[in-house]
Simulated assay, not measured.
Amino acid sequence: MTHHLRLPVAFALVLLAVPPLAARADSSSVASISASVSKAVGSVSDSIQGSSHSASGPRVAAGPYRVVEIAAAEDRPGVERVQLQGDAAQFTLLLPAEVRQRAALQAGDRVAVSTPAYGVAFVREGAAEPFFLALDDAWRHEFQRQAVTR
């Protein structure tokens, strides 16, 4: 399996794992699992500011970036603005504070940004998996949560 397909497949497997867990767990456990999965994934249009724009939303160049600054987003409770600086580009990633804390991301850290077909993946230097995925809007709509009924 190619690297570009591995992340969407892994994400889909996580989503598929939630219904079987729902059958065995109480509703608060399921809500917690669902919330943690959804907080690690956002849309490109809602998560990236200050980059170049195309018809499908903001565009970010792949490559290494350094975290310049982290600050609370005053207009969005529970969200932090993570300023990323690359060799030729700079942009702001709007990230749920919980996700940033879980990734232990701090000013000065390095982040590898990749741009697979489904959006933008952010991997902290030394980590094996992305701490956040910003899905292109078309992909994000494919993964919209739907109520499970019996």
Rank of each mutant, 00 (worst) to 15 (best):
M1F: 14
H3F: 11
H3R: 08
L5R: 10
L5C: 12
L5H: 15
R6A: 13
R6H: 10
L7N: 06
P8Q: 01
V9E: 12
V9T: 13
A10W: 05
F11S: 04
A12E: 06
L13A: 14
L16E: 14
L16K: 13
P20A: 01
L21M: 08
L21Y: 09
A22N: 07
A23H: 14
R24T: 15
R24W: 07
D26L: 04
S27P: 15
S27N: 06
S29W: 13
V30T: 15
V30H: 01
V30S: 03
A31F: 12
A31P: 09
I33V: 15
I33T: 15
S34L: 00
A35P: 05
A35D: 12
A35N: 06
S36P: 03
S36N: 02
S38R: 11
K39F: 01
K39Y: 01
K39E: 08
K39V: 01
A40T: 14
V41C: 04
G42Q: 01
S43D: 04
S43R: 07
V44P: 05
S47P: 10
I48A: 03
I48S: 02
I48L: 14
S52W: 00
S52E: 06
S54T: 15
S54L: 01
R59I: 13
V60H: 00
V60N: 00
A61D: 14
P64T: 00
P64A: 08
P64N: 05
P64F: 14
P64D: 11
R66Q: 11
V67W: 12
V68Q: 13
V68L: 10
E69I: 00
I70C: 01
I70R: 03
A72H: 03
D75Y: 10
D75T: 10
D75H: 12
R76Q: 14
P77I: 08
V79N: 01
V79L: 04
E80Y: 01
R81L: 10
R81G: 02
V82I: 09
V82M: 00
V82S: 05
D87W: 09
A88F: 15
A89V: 07
Q90Y: 04
Q90H: 05
T92R: 08
T92L: 05
T92I: 07
L93M: 07
L93T: 09
L95E: 07
P96W: 09
P96Q: 12
E98N: 02
E98P: 03
R100V: 09
R100L: 06
A103G: 13
A104M: 00
A104L: 00
L105F: 03
L105C: 03
A107Y: 11
G108A: 05
G108H: 10
D109Y: 12
D109S: 06
D109K: 11
A112W: 10
V113K: 00
S114H: 04
T115W: 02
P116N: 00
Y118Q: 08
Y118D: 09
Y118H: 12
Y118A: 10
G119P: 00
F122Y: 15
E125P: 12
G126Q: 11
A127E: 14
E129N: 06
F131P: 15
F132H: 10
A134F: 04
L135W: 11
L135T: 11
L135Q: 12
L135V: 10
A138M: 00
A138G: 03
H141D: 14
H141M: 08
H141T: 14
E142Y: 13
F143V: 13
T149Q: 05
